[in-house]
């Protein structure tokens, strides 16, 4: 029952519908249905936000530590260094997301260019 399990054209779409559409729009529709009955500030929402944040953070770390494609051919230390440099730029310069992206890319691509010499 994995993404590649069934060799039919419709399987990936069914997979995306169940694991993607159903798993997201259910919560949106619930929000419309509930109207004003859920407070952003409730204790339960703090727990929900914590789990969601940890989940996405786990994905981020996995993408850096166990990457695919061209990124898999780069040294782990360089990937982590590029991420750290981007995050440092973000913290130091007015929480600028675009700048952090640029710094990360420069460190990674520049680092690869130096290593290949």
């Amino acid at each position: 029952m994995t993404y590649g399990a069934i060799d039919a054209w419709w399987w990936p779409y069914l997979f995306i519908l169940v694991a993607g559409w159903l798993a997201t729009d259910f919560w949106r529709y619930l929000g419309v249905y509930l109207g004003g009955k859920v407070a952003e500030e409730s204790e339960a929402m703090v727990l929900v936000r914590c789990i969601a944040t940890a989940l996405v953070a786990a994905v981020i770390a996995s993408l850096v530590v166990y990457p695919g494609g061209a990124l898999a051919d780069t040294p782990l230390a360089l990937r982590i260094g590029a991420m750290a440099a981007g995050f440092a730029a973000y913290m130091l310069v007015r929480r600028n997301v675009l700048l952090s992206i640029v710094v990360t890319e420069i460190v990674l691509i520049g680092g690869l260019a130096i290593l290949q010499r």
Partner: peptide, 8 residues
């Protein structure tokens, strides 16, 4: 799940 309070 956080989409729910955002919609609310």
């Amino acid at each position: 799940i956080r989409l729910t309070p955002m919609v609310v």
